[in-house]
């Protein structure tokens, strides 16, 4: 291929028309409480792993709502399963359990 000296960067736009609802619904069937997340960020703020890695339950859930499974898995890679996030979630979501389900359904476990 001819090298033009530049490359196209992939679009960073979220296209909700491409949303994979089937996989997301599988997750919600297992974790109905995930729907309750109001994105307050408490979970990410207390996370022990987030100080050293890019770990955030809020961002992971948000990525899933935008149909970005791979990114969600990435956001949870550093998780140590300590359960601190579960203790602080104001909506009473069992986030630790949710993380396990996300990793299972989106192919990391």
């Amino acid at each position: 291929m001819v090298d033009f000296g530049f490359s196209l960067s992939p679009s960073s736009r979220i296209d909700l028309d491409e949303f994979d609802r089937k996989t997301f619904d599988r997750l919600l069937a297992l974790e109905p409480d995930a729907k309750k997340c109001m994105e307050c960020g408490s979970c990410s703020a207390v996370c022990t792993a987030s100080r050293y890695t890019e770990t955030s339950v809020r961002r992971a859930l948000h990525a899933l709502r935008n149909g970005c499974g791979a990114q969600a898995v990435e956001e949870l890679k550093g998780c140590q399963f300590c359960g601190k996030c579960t203790m602080v979630c104001p909506r009473g979501i069992n986030t630790r359990h949710l993380i396990l389900s996300i990793l299972k359904i989106y192919g990391a476990l």
């Binding site: 960073s12 736009r13 979220i14 296209d15 909700l16 028309d17 994105e39 961002r59 948000h62 990525a63 935008n66």
Partner: peptide
Amino acid sequence: EDTLSSKPVQIT
């Protein structure tokens, strides 16, 4: 813009 992820979003 989906301001929680700082990305533009579009939908039909």
